[in-house]
Design a protein around this nucleic acid. Structure first.
Length: 828
RNA sequence: GCCCGAGUGGCGGAAUUGGUAGACGCAAGGGACUUAAAAUCCCUCGGAACUCAGUUCUGUACCGGUUCGAGUCCGGUCUCGGGCACCA
């Protein structure tokens, strides 16, 4: 055999064998425990990038390890195939999105195969296939019937670059998460998923994920859901029977509420000023405020401004005539879009009152201090005792919160409530390449869902893509014009498509029965495989995808499809791949192409370096020199095994006691099995597992120099065999090849993960650090588990120890067996 | 402002329960082999000092504490990263 390591031929050989024998196919099975390992599926953008390589390599190690450790492992792969890049490519180069997408899928599938990943390709799905999105349309209709889907006209985030609205989760620092351009508010008709109905459960169930999810992600979700408890208060508008509703966390300050602030988007703004002479001023203010993008408008530095609407509302406790303002800092999105202003105890309201000369009434006095509205320079937001609050005077403000809320309930002016920051999920997209929303507008019957038996509503293929902002399918008469499923009369179809995050909210269930064609999935199969035991993906989905998927799982449960609450038991968020101090990106010109790495160094070396360079959850620094090191290691392994091939084949692993000369190697072998098993199983620390195997290789090189007898080679064979088994999840091709070269018949992937012999893990001797007063003075080697007396005697006989004990009395000796002996002494 | 992380050689990173700080790898320097180079193999590699086979001092962002013993625990400070934030 040629002794030079040439990964390309080895890798393609084994990839073909794996593919031809369908070795990675799995089915429901009862004698092994199941394990569902999932990596976030990719968008088929054209080529895989280093982020994919890292993510999927980590997953593949776990999948292969778990298989060898005796689990029935589901490890599927598919494509998050709807989305805007396909459409943009179509506009730019006149390729149909469908063709573009499927060509990309073919190319990327081949790339993933070249990496040697152990996917069950029979389960591959693409979310743009009607067989997939059909079920999503069914869920939509069932959710609609249950009141979990509704349509509403609202001010929404609009990205002018992408020509579509965006969900709140998809706006990052006022910019579109995808293209980075400024997002504006625009009034739009939109379909919403009522995720807020699950806000409390999404928050509560975070408790169930504590053990398996990174705390960071759970915190982010908690912040995003943003629960706060407070009171809903109704203020009557003077001269009408209408109320303004307000949410406050400080009902204790209600007696000090002297004006009202409304968001510019508040519906009352359109009617309130009528007849007051303020109409013009208000509408000008609203128009100019709404032109400013939300991010700027809500930044700290933005000047707080407002305009009087000409109307008043009545403080329900004091009867105070509160002027109603429209103010640019009030968010329509949060609470009720209206804020009762208490300038004495809220800094923002204080500034506003000073600016417009509004009344300030102190209602909470801090201990040992008397606040005076005339001399106050800022609001007092701390605790204290109520004043100017009628029967509540003298009460501690913390107690008054409940007391005032109770009182409001009694006079029917308010109630205790819980408010969430989380908004309903707007899922309409004015784009072509997505799943059509299965609704119909009938002149007689109004908005009605498509009849379930007519699903799927197929996305028409004969479109012209222009990127003008109207849904392209709205212009296709044959699609839009339809008949009403209720009355059979003329009707028009909804022409918006669904947010692509809807597809990724349930794909992990479809993998369980990907070929089911009479229902979304088979309940038995989903119940067998789900929940996902280990999910792996990027931190950028901490809120977006992971929150939506949790929500959707709960919805499908309540629709009766499944019987569990959470989709992902454990989550690993892997770090980014960094080069030259920045995330790899085309614009920075620091992109490394995986395909080049595969052809230069092979898939195995690429995989190895991705795993070795950093622990998975940390960002990984790409290093061109580093991958050469990985390649060097594999070459070293290759030569090691093939150089000894003859001697190894002619001997067998023996259960006899090894020759003395080989005892250290046998010990190292079992220690390495233990270390590698624990690093994978308990810690997901592949870098230290690889380091341990490198050490074993280094030891094997030394052993190879001295070995002569078959008995000695037998121990080497034991080490090499186990090494190859352990390496196989990391570098599967070279491991299979060398395994085969040693004459093993069974394929490594089908081989069992090795057990270690605990008696061979322990060293015979222990190196003990000898300290005098906590400082290292010598190291001694003693037999394991030696008595303190013997160790102490040895320690005291060390010259350097004696030196430091001169003219001193020993006060105390601390002995930790096999580790350390510390002699505490004081000068005479 | 609130809530999380993280700070260790020239670099990526080890040190799992408080017990020899720097495993493994990269880079660098030296040597062997070679006509030469590549490849390979061996040695050195945190800093400083000295009486240099060795030994001492010092060192895990900074200041302090607990402990026989702290990278690890506690209190405080600084820096960096992340999330939320005019949130009523």
């Amino acid at each position: 055999m040629n002794t030079e390591y040439k990964p390309q031929s080895v890798e393609s050989k084994w990839q073909k064998i794996w593919q031809d024998s369908n070795i990675f196919g799995v089915s429901q099975e009862n004698d092994k425990p199941k394990y569902y390992l999932l990596e976030m599926f990719p968008y088929p953008s054209g080529r895989i990038h280093m982020g994919h390589v890292r993510n999927y390599t980590i997953g593949d190690v776990v999948a292969r390890y778990k298989t060898m450790a005796g689990f029935n492992v589901l490890h599927p792969m598919g494509w998050d195939a709807f989305g805007m890049p396909a459409e943009n490519a179509a506009i730019a180069s006149k390729i149909h999105p469908k063709k573009w997408t499927y060509e990309n899928i073919d190319y990327m599938r081949a790339q993933l195969r070249k990496m040697g990943f152990s996917y069950d390709w029979d389960r591959e799905i693409a979310t743009c296939a009607p067989e997939y999105y059909k079920w999503e349309q069914l869920f939509f209709i069932q959710m609609y019937n249950k009141g979990l889907v509704y349509k509403s006209r609202a001010f929404l985030n609009w990205c002018d670059q992408c020509k579509t609205v965006l969900a709140n989760e998809q706006v990052v620092e006022g910019q579109c998460w995808r293209c980075g351009s400024q997002v504006f508010l625009k009034e739009h008709d939109q379909w919403f998923f009522r995720i807020t109905a699950y806000a409390q459960e999404l928050l509560d169930d975070i408790e169930k994920l504590k053990d398996g999810w990174p705390e960071r992600v759970l915190n982010m979700q908690k912040n995003w859901i943003g629960r706060s408890t407070g009171t809903l208060i109704r203020f009557q508008i003077e001269g009408t029977s209408e109320d303004i509703e307000v949410f406050t966390t400080r009902p204790d300050t209600l007696h000090g509420a002297t004006f009202m602030s409304l968001a510019p988007e508040h519906p009352l703004i359109k009617t309130l000023p009528t007849g007051t002479g303020q109409e013009r001023e208000v509408s000008d203010f609203v128009a100019s405020t709404l032109q400013v993008d939300t991010f700027t408008r809500t930044s700290d530095l933005y000047e707080k401004e407002g305009v009087f609407t000409g109307r008043y509302c009545i403080n329900p406790l004091t009867g105070f005539r509160m002027p109603i303002y429209v103010a640019n800092f009030v968010l329509y999105d949060y609470g009720t879009g209206a804020v009762m202003a208490v300038p004495s105890h809220d800094q923002r309201d204080f500034d506003f009152a000073k600016k417009y000369g509004l009344e300030i009434i102190v209602v909470i006095q801090p201990e040992g201090e008397t606040l005076d509205p005339k001399t106050m320079e800022c609001a007092y937001e701390g605790e204290g005792v109520l004043v100017n609050s009628k029967e509540f005077n003298g009460m501690k403000n913390t107690d008054a919160m409940e007391a005032i809320t109770k009182h409001l309930e009694a006079i029917n002016r308010g109630s205790a409530t819980v408010n969430f920051r989380l908004r309903d999920w707007g899922i309409s997209r004015q784009r072509y390449w997505g799943a059509p929303i299965p609704m119909v507008y009938c002149e007689k019957c109004g908005t009605v869902p498509v009849d379930v038996k007519d699903l799927p509503v197929l996305l028409p293929e004969n479109v012209e893509l222009t990127g003008t902002g109207i849904s392209p399918i709205a212009q296709i008469e044959s699609f839009v014009n339809t008949t009403c499923p209720v009355c059979g009369g003329k009707a028009k179809r909804e022409s918006d498509t669904m947010d692509t995050f809807v597809e990724s909210s349930w794909y992990f269930m479809r993998y369980c029965s990907p070929h089911s064609n009479d229902k979304p999935f088979d309940r038995n199969e989903v119940q067998y495989w789900m929940p996902v035991d280990q999910y792996i993906g990027g931190i950028e989905h901490a809120i977006l995808h992971l929150l939506y998927a949790r929500f959707y799982t709960k919805v499908l449960r309540d629709l009766g499809y499944i019987g569990f609450d959470e989709p992902f038991q454990r989550l690993l968020t892997q770090g980014m791949v960094i080069k030259d101090g920045a995330k790899m990106s085309k614009s920075k010109g620091n992109v490394v192409d995986p395909e080049e790495l595969i052809s230069n160094y092979g898939a195995d070396a690429t995989r190895l370096f991705c795993l070795f360079a950093a622990p998975p959850e940390k960002d990984m620094d790409w290093s061109d020199k580093g991958i050469e090191g990985s390649y060097r290691f594999l070459s070293r392994l290759w030569r090691l095994v093939l150089d000894m091939k003859e001697q190894l084949i002619s001997t067998d692993v023996s259960s006899e006691r090894p020759p003395k000369s080989m005892e250290p190697l046998k010990r190292k072998t079992h220690q390495t099995i233990k270390k590698v098993s624990e690093d994978i199983e308990k810690r997901f620390r592949f870098n230290t597992a690889i380091a341990a195997m490198m050490e074993l290789v280094n030891d094997l090189y030394r052993a190879k120099e001295t070995a002569r007898t078959p008995e000695e080679f037998s121990v080497i064979r034991e080490a090499v065999q186990n090494l190859l088994v352990m390496l196989s999840p990391f570098v599967p091709h070279i491991a299979e090849e060398l395994w085969d070269a040693l004459g093993n018949r069974e394929m490594l992937f089908r081989f069992s993960w090795p057990d270690y012999d605990p008696s061979w893990c322990e060293e015979q001797e222990a190196t003990i650090a000898v300290q005098v007063n906590g400082k290292l003075r010598a190291t001694i080697t003693v037999t394991r588990d030696s008595e303190q007396k013997a160790v102490e005697a040895r320690a005291l006989s060390e010259a350097n120890v004696k030196r430091f004990l001169q003219d001193s009395d020993i006060k105390k000796v601390i002995y930790v067996p096999n580790k350390i002996i510390n002699i505490i002494a004081a000068a005479r």
